[in-house]
Amino acid sequence: MSKRDYYEVLGVSKTSSEAEIKKAYRKKAIQFHPDKNPGDKQAEENFKEAAEAYEILSHPEKRQRYDQYGHAGVGGAAGGGFGGAGMSMEDIFSHFGDIFGGGGSFFGGGFGGGGRSSRRVNRGSNLRVKVKLTLKEIAEGVEKKIKVKKYVECKSCNGSGAKDGSSFSTCSSCNGSGHVTRIQNTILGQMQTSSTCPTCNGEGKIITNKCTSCAGEGIVRDEEVITINIPAGVAEGMQLSVSGRGNAARRGGVNGDLLILIQEEEHPELVRDENDLLYNLFISIPDSILGTAVEIPTIESKVKVKIDNGTQPGKILRLRGKGLPDVNGYGRGDLLVKINVWIPNNVSKEEKKILEKLQASESFTPKPSIHDKSFFKKVRNFFD
């Protein structure tokens, strides 16, 4: 099932400011919040969809990649789920502080849920890796297995940080809530503020006997082999995101993301120009005059192309559909072949006599021609 456009999900335009996007998300979150819609699965899906859209559009880099490449640039395709596709409800509620100024529930328990705990959810940091791809891999899409050094869950304590997995006590400062409330007297009256508990760092519990393998952190440094599926048509500098495959979080929180920076390996014969491929073909003077058949390299194999007699230097042959696929699925580029006539630097005496006779012939007198302006517009930076 294809994803809806993130701007459409939040009901905003592509030119909307960060403040407008934040306001639109707040409105959607209130409308579809699970506390307000108990048991409504569709409302819960809409709630998650709005959170995913906000996660992308509120982040300048992610929004830029989404505007340029669509869902393929920030997620959706494969490899464990890109972008925000893997968001859990805990992950969503952990980000509510900057939107609603408090915990996951902003209805005060008035909609049947009794309020949600505002305990802090730890989040692992993101990892960034570079992946080099050949043009063939870019054209077809590819599955890659990469070895990554990262923080993973401690096996000795299953990520809890406690030696026997149950060595915890409720934090006495916040009574297990993860936050402390203070009431201050001001000229406007009493003001109530809520903040993360400094004793337990918002976790609501204290480890009484730490795991010796991870020193109570719940994570250790290790290597992991990760399989990622890269969609066809990606480009140099494009960044993909695999949700939840970054560093593990301390004591059972939400894992970070794995960011994949695409790099292209240089092809020995073909040059990429967006979704088109460019190739310089050199033929001899006789072949240019009399015509010939030549083999042209493509990504998959070689194809035979006919060169008509009297072909002029600079002519462009277009092999339709022999370029690269669009990353968003909008067709495929072409292979553009520029004809160049090879002029030898040295000739023999016999060849020189033949050329001198040809030089005197009317057939070899240059005729004025009109340049193909569309060609110069297309490949002005490549074939100079």
Score class of each variant (00 low, 15 high):
residue 2 S to Q: 05
residue 4 R to V: 14
residue 9 V to Y: 00
residue 17 S to E: 15
residue 22 K to E: 09
residue 23 K to M: 00
residue 24 A to I: 06
residue 25 Y to M: 00
residue 28 K to C: 03
residue 29 A to M: 01
residue 33 H to Q: 05
residue 35 D to N: 02
residue 35 D to F: 08
residue 39 G to M: 06
residue 39 G to W: 08
residue 41 K to V: 01
residue 47 F to S: 04
residue 48 K to M: 10
residue 49 E to L: 14
residue 54 Y to P: 10
residue 57 L to F: 12
residue 60 P to M: 09
residue 61 E to S: 03
residue 61 E to A: 09
residue 63 R to C: 05
residue 65 R to G: 00
residue 70 G to W: 06
residue 71 H to T: 13
residue 72 A to V: 10
residue 73 G to W: 01
residue 73 G to V: 09
residue 78 A to C: 10
residue 79 G to M: 15
residue 89 M to A: 09
residue 91 D to W: 12
residue 99 I to Y: 06
residue 100 F to Y: 10
residue 106 F to Y: 12
residue 116 R to P: 05
residue 116 R to Q: 02
residue 120 R to D: 03
residue 127 L to C: 08
residue 134 T to F: 14
residue 140 E to P: 13
residue 143 E to Q: 14
residue 152 V to D: 03
residue 152 V to P: 03
residue 155 K to R: 05
residue 156 S to A: 08
residue 161 G to R: 12
residue 169 S to F: 13
residue 171 C to F: 08
residue 173 S to D: 02
residue 179 H to Y: 12
residue 181 T to S: 15
residue 182 R to G: 02
residue 192 Q to A: 11
residue 201 N to H: 09
residue 203 E to R: 02
residue 204 G to A: 11
residue 208 T to G: 01
residue 208 T to N: 07
residue 211 C to W: 14
residue 211 C to E: 06
residue 213 S to W: 07
residue 216 G to H: 12
residue 219 I to M: 05
residue 220 V to S: 12
residue 222 D to I: 03
residue 222 D to G: 07
residue 225 V to L: 03
residue 231 P to M: 15
residue 232 A to C: 06
residue 237 G to V: 06
residue 238 M to Q: 15
residue 238 M to T: 10
residue 239 Q to P: 02
residue 240 L to V: 07
residue 242 V to E: 08
residue 243 S to A: 06
residue 246 G to F: 06
residue 247 N to Q: 13
residue 254 V to H: 06
residue 254 V to S: 10
residue 256 G to K: 06
residue 271 V to K: 02
residue 274 E to C: 14
residue 275 N to R: 08
residue 275 N to I: 11
residue 278 L to R: 00
residue 280 N to M: 02
residue 286 P to E: 13
residue 287 D to Q: 00
residue 288 S to I: 02
residue 288 S to C: 01
residue 293 A to C: 04
residue 295 E to L: 07
residue 298 T to M: 14
residue 300 E to A: 03
residue 301 S to N: 15
residue 307 I to M: 14
residue 308 D to Y: 00
residue 309 N to S: 08
residue 311 T to F: 09
residue 311 T to S: 07
residue 318 R to F: 10
residue 318 R to K: 10
residue 320 R to A: 06
residue 325 P to Y: 04
residue 327 V to M: 10
residue 328 N to D: 01
residue 329 G to H: 15
residue 329 G to E: 02
residue 330 Y to F: 12
residue 334 D to C: 04
residue 335 L to K: 03
residue 338 K to W: 02
residue 338 K to N: 11
residue 341 V to M: 09
residue 349 K to P: 05
residue 349 K to H: 01
residue 349 K to C: 03
residue 352 K to Q: 15
residue 355 L to F: 12
residue 358 L to R: 01
residue 359 Q to H: 02
residue 362 E to D: 12
residue 364 F to R: 02
residue 364 F to M: 15
residue 367 K to H: 13
residue 368 P to A: 08
residue 372 D to P: 04
residue 378 K to H: 11
residue 381 N to G: 13
residue 383 F to Q: 02
